[in-house]
Amino acid sequence: MHDDYRRSPVRPKLVLALAALLAAALAGWLISDAVRGGEGDPKAPGAPTGTAAGRVAGKPPEGSPANGVTGGAANGRADGPGSLAGKVVVIDPGHNPSNFQHAREIAELVDIGTNHKECDTTGTSTDDGYPEAAFTRDVSHRLRDLLRERGATVRLTHDADRPFGPCVDERAVIGNQAGADAVVSVHADGSAVGHRGFHVILPALVKGGKADTTRIVGPSRALGERLARSFGRATGSAPANYLGGGTGLDVREDLGGLNLSTVPKVFLECGNMRDPQDAALLTDPAWRQKAATGIADGIGAYLLGQDAGTDER
């Protein structure tokens, strides 16, 4: 620094003035940039990126509960009124897409308490070839997501992650070992054309061999009744016109998945795949979402001790 700069009475004032102008300009640019970034424009200079950008734009960051990755608690239902926190639900998707490739294995007989039955079957399909196993897996996935959003702990008996099965006796064991508060086996029927509607299969009072449904008959009926009401309301479908006397309920003693269960369990036949009108519903993704909602509502009503007509959401 030169001596004549320090002695000049004008230069310090000029420096101060220039500094003030620069500071004002910089502050104005920062304010403008912050405003642009706050509108969530990812291309605006200075806009937040990554997680911060998602928050500014009003979108949850990837992996947040609101994206459904960790269970959807952000919708307020997992820990608010109607919460199923602490409840364990087992979903049993009927059949397995690969069963048809293992005819010998699924034909082997297993003990269902009162007698012996085939390990599993291939299930039915629509006339256009949409298989029951694909339907049950799709609805089960939708149901799983809805129940987790409500706070429940959910387990599937399988997820097409094994070559065949599980066998009907193992399906019951999975629910038992999980200590499930409720188990729903998702199916679609393969009855005659003109047979339409859904029905819920309830366990009969069975005692013999490994089977003893004494303690679950009552709770399973309560689950089934709520499920029938909520499913009909959500889907607009009527109870089956070919069994159950219009109640949508059918009691059976020949199903190993029910006979061997020690926890409340029902089967739900969501419709008849062999009837064209029902098949049109079962193959519609929007209707399958309604079906999952109806099942979730019925399970929720049962677990919370509510009537199925109560809107717990």
Rank of each mutant, 00 (worst) to 15 (best):
G248N: 14
E132F: 03
R155D: 03
D169P: 06
G179W: 02
S261Q: 13
V263W: 07
I112Q: 08
L243I: 14
S8I: 12
G244P: 09
A238S: 12
R274A: 04
A57H: 02
T293I: 05
A47W: 00
T70W: 00
A211Y: 07
P48Q: 00
S220I: 12
Y302I: 15
R6L: 08
R144K: 05
L16I: 05
G175Q: 03
S98R: 10
G197H: 04
V110P: 04
V173T: 15
T283M: 11
L255K: 12
A301V: 11
G38P: 05
V88N: 10
N241M: 06
T283H: 09
P42N: 02
S191I: 12
K265P: 12
G300T: 15
G300S: 14
R104I: 07
P131A: 06
D92G: 02
G28L: 15
A25I: 13
V193Y: 06
G179C: 02
G80F: 09
G68D: 00
R233S: 03
D212T: 12
R36S: 08
D275W: 09
R148S: 01
F100S: 11
A182Y: 00
F164R: 09
A280D: 14
D3P: 12
Y242N: 15
A107D: 14
G257F: 08
R221A: 14
L281N: 10
A20P: 12
G54Y: 03
A188D: 01
G197R: 13
N99F: 05
R221Y: 02
E39T: 06
C119P: 13
L282M: 14
G256W: 11
R221D: 13
G50S: 10
L255C: 06
T121W: 01
V266Q: 11
R55I: 15
S261P: 09
R215K: 06
R226V: 09
R162Q: 10
P81Q: 08
A296D: 11
A53M: 13
S32Q: 12
V200Y: 09
A182I: 04
G63S: 00
G305M: 04
L281I: 07
D169A: 14
P97K: 04
G208D: 08
T126D: 03
G309S: 10
L202R: 07
S98A: 12
D128V: 03
A308C: 00
G197W: 03
V217G: 11
T49E: 01
G224V: 11
D33R: 15
H95W: 01
V10Y: 14
G123N: 02
Y130T: 09
